[in-house]
Nucleic acid binder design. Structure first.
Lengths: 111, 111
DNA sequence: AAGGATACTTTGTTATACAAGGTATAGAAT
DNA sequence: ATTCTATACCTTGTATAACAAAGTATCCTT
């Protein structure tokens, strides 16, 4: 699967970009990404939760448990100051990178 | 390094897109990519040659040796029919994928 | 009673970019 | 003469990260 490899390197960026907009929890993030991308990106749990733990361990986001009325616990995440700085950087990097790939790949051989 | 992970999944696509334009050899491909992307993507030999071998083994490209006047051998690659079909597919996939990431990442929270 | 949605977790597998080493030639600079 | 840079290819070992697959638990619908 090519998509699997394409995702590498951009998943953390997407998670941080969503969390930047306000506290979110994993399951909702996955639904948001599916919805925003019309199912082009369908994040699996085995990718999502380890990625969130990774970002938390790196200090990019911080998590906190919140209990719903029915007693179910959700782990919400918000972005940290350090995470915000890295996010800005990575966002710019993604722009450069995707533009670069598109240029190499684009169908304009001669001229 | 984030770039390392970003590259995963799009390197094969870039190589095939360049080879599509006419027979090319590894060293030239690396120079082309650096030049086209203003050094944003600087392909390492340890990535380049294994990737070419992989594509050849998969039947996407085929290589042939060509000797220069000075006796130096170069391995040129051209795209195969199967490779062309996969390239078209991957090119479309890259468009979908990069647009999807950009949408999730883009700085338009509300509205 | 069974199935699906919600919500989080973990273990093991796989793919691949790259660091670092190697071989070899040619021309320019010191 | 020797060193350095560019050209041109190759290989081994390592690290990373997405994912499959399994698990736990609750709630609601059929």
């Amino acid at each position: 699967m090519f998509e699997r490899e394409l995702l590498k390197g951009s998943l953390g960026l997407m998670l941080m970009a969503l969390i930047e907009q306000g506290p979110m929890y994993g399951y909702l993030i996955a639904k948001e990404i599916r919805s925003l991308t019309d199912d082009v990106i369908d994040l699996k749990e085995g990718s999502l939760y380890p990625a969130l733990h990774r970002l938390e361990k790196e200090g990019m986001i911080e998590g906190f448990w919140q209990r719903r009325e029915d007693g179910v616990d959700r782990r919400y995440y918000r972005i940290t100051a350090a995470g915000q700085a890295v996010l800005d950087e990575r966002r710019a990097q993604w722009s450069r990178f995707s533009a670069a790939v598109s240029k190499v790949v684009s169908d304009a051989p001669s001229q």
